[in-house]
Design a binder for these strands. Structure first.
Lengths: 331, 331
DNA sequence: AGTAAAATTGCAAAGGTTTGCGATAATGTT
DNA sequence: AACATTATCGCAAACCTTTGCAATTTTACT
């Protein structure tokens, strides 16, 4: 039956050409008002919607944006995703979400999938283990813009949107020193990531710069339970830390569990300061003092950057987002 | 330049026909080994990948799955999404994620977008306010299967994957009664949702059935801060509840904040039991006793259901997932 | 060698849309 | 009335792939 809603069928019924229908529907000036009216009415009636694939095929561009993250169900990313999706929808784009599960091979497969689907742009937060950016470069030079966010490569020859990680570290340092703390246990995530290195650098260097009397010992915790274990072990030594710094929500989660397990009180028994999205810090008593890294703000900024790429055709850029301290009572 | 990697170009270079190239690449038995070899080599070299749109257009089916939820950054959905994405990827599908932000109009727009993109299937968790399922039915009958999950319609003439909500309510009831509690403040979310009604029914009816001596007062909290406010107000009355039941993580979050604000101890000052995904309950001291509703399990099940639809072509079905009690020390 | 069967390849249409350009019809100008 | 404009519209190619069927070549068999 010829009842499928296509340009061809509409044209057939109205006994006019396909091109006229096509143009009528996009309000092309060449088409007579009367014709437009008839076409629009019938299209409405038939519930016509253009076949997206045909359009993509013809125009060779899709209104889809690729997003590749290690894990969506991460405290930080899901607010980023949420914001990005919102902004994208406003502009008529839709989001193709891929997880790479911290596996470079999957990450590469996802990248191919994006290319295959001719996405308009790819937003990427790198896997911790990714070292080789060849595939990214290849795709980037094939015409699909890539915007890195949060977990970005060191290389400056690309487009990055990230947090002012070093400043965040410094801000934490000043807060800690300001409260007169002397013995800091600073917990960080994957040391491969520039985000980790920068935060660590900011924190340690700023403390050193401010005072020689504060001792900082940095450790790596790969996940919540490691963080928990490390805290518990540290608190059993005689040289106990008086402050814990948590680089991420994931680590903070572990630390909270550890504190609860040991029945410690903040800030008397142990002070806590974290870098966080702001949700978890509100759940404790007292609330935890944290430096806010808003996934939502980052998401919005990322979309903005994409718009700029489209308009101005830039190919390298660094956007940095500032953060602020939110005081709880944990330090 | 003719260097774009398409079947046509490969065929041109090798001086064979497009169809031969196409078939060679899919290892069609009609094609000679030698030819296949040559084609594959060149395709590899040229970094050929089929144009997804052309394939979709031709075959009229895409390897994309639509997902419509009120909010991704919801405690429950993001684990669902994460699991679904994983399962989908295994089968070569990719996820198109749309948020409707609890707005029926946006929800409908998203639905259209899915149709427009000819997705293979749509997974939907309804907005609280959605009452009219006409659009869903229209799309459903247009050939795209729709699988409702979590927030599902009452109507049984569709495909649903959901939790054993009434049983969950009953399980909570038995736990509360078993602990000898007498005065329960039960907090629920949007009363429009069947999920809410069922949980409420399960809880209240089971308690009534078990004993006449327990008083349950049910209230509606639309978000975290309302939940917090309600708890605080309730604890200031002289007929204080001895137990709070939280229907969701969102409500639980508010309750925890309220408890912290008032400086209450669980379970002495107030006992808490919740329905939760399991993350937040681990953050308190003592940990909160909860009935686990795994987004991950639901996601996996949802994908399974889709596979069944594909294979057996069913059009109505109800899948129910059981839950279990996880004991913390909050009751 | 001649024919049948099998192996290999190509033709061409189809899928739905967009768009440059040419064709036709309507209107305006002298 | 003859010509120039302008307003409308249609033709046909292009985007890239898939696939039924026909055409061609090779191999097998008598």
């Amino acid at each position: 039956m010829g009842s499928k809603a296509t340009l061809k069928n509409i044209a057939g019924i109205l006994e006019i050409s396909i091109s006229t229908v096509s143009r009528a529907l996009k309000d092309h000036p060449d088409i007579a008002q009367e014709t437009k009216r008839k076409v629009r009415e019938l299209a409405e009636l038939m519930d016509y919607e253009p076949n997206a694939f045909a359009v993509y095929l013809r125009t060779n561009e899709s209104k889809v944006i690729g997003l590749i993250v290690p894990e969506i169900s991460n405290y930080f990313y899901h607010s980023f995703v949420s914001a990005l999706e919102n902004e994208a929808r406003k502009k008529g784009y839709t989001l193709l979400i891929l997880q790479s599960g911290n596996d470079s091979a999957v990450e590469e497969a996802n990248l191919r999938l994006c290319k295959l689907n001719r996405v308009a742009c790819i937003f990427v937060a790198l896997c911790s283990e990714t070292r080789d950016l060849a595939t990214f470069n290849r795709i980037g030079s094939s015409g699909i813009p890539i915007v890195f966010f949060d977990k970005v490569p060191e290389d400056n020859n690309c487009i990055k949107v990230c947090l002012a990680d070093r400043d965040i570290g410094r801000l934490a340092a000043r807060t800690i020193v300001g409260k007169g703390k002397k013995n800091v246990l600073a917990m960080f995530g994957n040391p491969n990531l520039s985000i980790t290195r920068k935060r660590k650098q900011g924190l340690t260097e700023e403390i050193k710069k401010l005072t020689p009397f504060v001792n900082v010992s940095t450790v790596t915790a790969n996940n919540s339970s490691e963080a928990k274990a490390i805290l518990i072990e540290a608190m059993e030594k005689k040289e106990k830390p008086d402050t814990v710094f948590c680089m991420s929500d994931e680590i903070l989660t572990g630390v909270i569990m550890g504190i609860n397990k040991l029945g410690l009180k903040m800030p008397q028994d142990i002070a806590v300061i974290a870098i966080s999205n702001g949700f978890i810090p509100k759940l404790t008593n007292p609330e935890i003092t944290y430096i806010e890294t808003s996934g939502a703000v980052l998401g919005k900024k990322a979309m903005q950057t994409f718009t700029e790429i489209l308009e101005k055709g830039i190919s390298k850029k660094l956007d940095v987002i500032n953060s602020k301290l939110v005081e709880g009572g944990s330090i």
